[in-house]
Amino acid sequence: MIANILDGIIFGIQLGLWAAGLTLIYGLGGVLNLAHGQIAVISAMVLAFAMDAGLPALPASGLALLVGGLVGLFLDLTILRPVYRLQGEARVLLSLLLTLGFAFIVDGFLNWRYPGRALSLFIGGGAIDILGVPMRRGSLLASAITLVAFAALFSFFRFTTLGRAVRSVIEDEEGARLVGIDPARIMRLILVLSGVLAALVAVTRSMVVSVDVQAGFGITVLALIVTVVGGLGSVSGALLAGIILGIVNVIAADVIGTFMSLVVLLLAAAVTILIRPAGLLGVEE
């Protein structure tokens, strides 16, 4: 049971980090990126092929993160351009439709060219005892990396001028402009960052389970639900919601089986949204 809960927490933190990218993009500019999962998959494939080509795991992972960031930048420079010209709900809708179109292209291409291809980074060595529970080395490394990434993210927002500038745009875009912050550049920065994070989670995820070419939409949908439950625009909310849903997921899977656990997870999410539309840590408007 404890082993399962630990697994759930690890999965939850990873979900949280995926959701963090989505939630930041939404909070900054009312843009929903439905190609988030595809960025993760592209990066995973880059890593798989780089390692096939003989690149050691570490530089290959670096390459995967770089590619993740570049895809984010690409979205900002191309299909999101017309989105930025709109306001309000029209903006969210168009962003959702255009990124969905992009996601189709990526999914279709990868499944056509590399059907069934998957990335798994198995970390060797025996299990290590944590609280009397044997944990696989891969899981431990994955959760360590994810936690460090979260800590780095939080310090960035708390202690750096640029991080504060990002928060200021989320809180009041016009106020941010008045102190000299260009919201468009902040948005670009965060799209790159969210691409890197998506790639990072794909890499760490592949240390626990394999990440295949079809994983994209599943990732996006889970991240979207975590984002909404945590509160749009709130990174700490994403982490909290990720962990809660991660635990709910493993416990429910244990008790009633995989498909039904998904139902429980979804209902938990729906109930949270209905009780608190702003999300767990979101701000009521």
């Binding site: 709900e89 959702l96 949908v221 639900i225 998904l262």
Partner: peptide, 23 residues
């Protein structure tokens, strides 16, 4: 709920329906 939240709630409904079909 605005357009987006209605979309997300109904998307969750869709996913639940799918999971039920399989479950």
């Amino acid at each position: 709920l605005g357009v987006i939240f209605t979309g997300i709630i109904t998307l969750i409904f869709t996913l639940t329906f799918d999971a039920l079909l399989l479950g």
